[in-house]
Amino acid sequence: MELSIAIFIGILYACGVFLLLRRSIVKVILGVFVLSNATNLIIFLAGGVERGGIGFVNENGEPAAAMSDPLPQALVLTAIVIGLGIAAYILVLKYQYFKVTGTHDLDQLKNTEQK
């Protein structure tokens, strides 16, 4: 289980980096989203993945037979919420940039570059 998730994370990172290196801003932004989810999965994996494992104790206060570490799940939840906020913001920024410049091309960003 853990191995397959690890391989999956690797594939996600590869896709994310590939998208980041594209010239179109939209693809770069999609790359950022993919990387963000790959990173969330790393935290999720860090706590150890247990099939059917639950992250809480039962009503008598005893841990269940198959128990998962609840902390990474809480951390991932925080990271997902932050990621969502950033995703919304970055899309608005892209939209505004497109309205002002009429281009998707990263090479057009050159004019703010230091000479």
């Binding site: 770069v28 950022v32 920024l93 410049t101 960003l109």
Partner: peptide, 20 residues
């Protein structure tokens, strides 16, 4: 806006490094 896009993407990448 052009400056913001560069600032934003590179800082996000640093956040990913940190979280990983």
């Amino acid at each position: 806006l052009g400056g913001s896009i560069k600032y934003l993407i590179l800082n996000l990448i640093s956040s990913f490094f940190f979280v990983a």
